[in-house]
Write a protein that binds this DNA or RNA. Sequence first.
DNA 1: CTAATAGTGTCTATTAGACAGTATGTT
DNA 2: AACATACTGTCTAATAGACACTATTAG
Lengths: 279, 279
Amino acid sequence: MAVKDEKVFKSEKEFLAAYDPNAFERLSITTDILLLSVSSTISDNYRKNDKKSMSVLLVKRDSYPFKGKWCLPGGFVGYNEELEEAPKRILKSETNLTNIYLEQLYTYGNVKRDPRMRVISTAYMALVDKNILKDDLKDEAMWFDITMLEDDEQAIINLDNGVINFNVKLEKKLKEKTTELYDYKIVENKNLAFDHAKVLLNGITRLRNKANYTDIVFNMMPEYFTLGELQQVYEVILNKKLLDPAFRRIIEPKVEKTSKMRTGEGHRPSVLFKYKGNK
Amino acid sequence: MAVKDEKVFKSEKEFLAAYDPNAFERLSITTDILLLSVSSTISDNYRKNDKKSMSVLLVKRDSYPFKGKWCLPGGFVGYNEELEEAPKRILKSETNLTNIYLEQLYTYGNVKRDPRMRVISTAYMALVDKNILKDDLKDEAMWFDITMLEDDEQAIINLDNGVINFNVKLEKKLKEKTTELYDYKIVENKNLAFDHAKVLLNGITRLRNKANYTDIVFNMMPEYFTLGELQQVYEVILNKKLLDPAFRRIIEPKVEKTSKMRTGEGHRPSVLFKYKGNK
DNA sequence: CTAATAGTGTCTATTAGACAGTATGTT
DNA sequence: AACATACTGTCTAATAGACACTATTAG
């Protein structure tokens, strides 16, 4: 143990004074941030609405290991820094954003996940309405559009930033009695550093699931939005078409009609809504 | 950075050879295991079925800090140990069990959560059918029955091992834009060490949610069980009465009827079922 | 026979899915 | 007028909730 012959200490205070924190081999902890948003591609037809897609912020590594590859923004957690403060700090330095939705995703701890040394990383998922960013991204950070094809055996994630386009392929292995239902194995990945493909897959899955039973999606919306836009975001996240009347029935109690309208789109104007909150 | 003037390295291999893992201040990582099960209290009336309740395995601390208090089994993660192997190793040493359901719960990283030093802990939830344990618990480990009362503002967890009985009270604070819906603050806790009350609350909540949309509950069942027993376990986890016909309709595709019966209970015998698996 | 649980039939209420229709702006 | 989307009415299918009933054992 870290202190010899514990029983001689008469109080916790006395014990702590004698405690040697170097008695156990320590390791490094980092955090990675999966910042997701929804981006719009302006249609060439003035009448048509914009196409939406999910997007993720990736940073190009300028040093070893994985030099030249893309990765999630991240960094070391300070010895005196709250675990949750680290992703907030990194997000601020990378995007200049504060007070955005942040949720702990999963802690990745494979011994060999970082070739430098033993590193355990707690990944966070952050959601944002991309349009509040005024393009003040630092470094080599860029938004990539995400398309994910998934079946019972594998998932293929396509990432596209307008210049580079690449696929990441992960195989699903059914797990027995341990941890989650599936274990993912990265089988094809030329451009994503570390195990960040797994983080991406887990995050998208989490967001998709939570979209069904929470109001998480509103964190990716601007203050005012049309129900059509909101439906499009849900469709992109859930990766399926929704029926208008059903969607409006379900979403109606969560939103508040405003007197504002969106006009000038070459078709019937739509009412702008606000998020009302649960219940 | 950890290596001076990175750009001079011509390859990743060369870079790694020069990397100094002590350049960043390191910290300790531990794991805590929330081992949950369901226990039965034999009724004094021979006709009546046993009362069931959820239970958790706690260990009495025999050293500082929190000497004399109860805590979840746990320990340090080795430098060369896979993150998921640590809880498995500790579970085996504590209960002699292997191959039981294990799921990562959450990573707790408050700077002051351990008075000795900075420790980040990844908590795992493990589920087991208590009856396969032949009372070969190590140390001062004991099962405590759990009763949880929860409303919009607080949660009160009662823990009872037949000898000691105590309450833990947590207040809910609504979080804005950050992390999960609620943040919990332990406001009353005389007997549970560290922040383990939070782990307990998060784990019970996770199990309750997952009981509704996964087959997680079967990890707490023996190989053969009656539908009445299964329903009781669901009722204990969900903390509400279920209607027989509805329960049977929903559970029917997941279970397989056997030719075995349970008799001698002072009432109509019941058919024993097995878990069939999903779909 | 009685107490107690096992197990089923069926009605009703609620929710989800589908389709077709009407409404209203811009060019 | 034509296009494109906004928005609504209503039928139907699927699911969940409720209640009442029958079945079967040990003592």
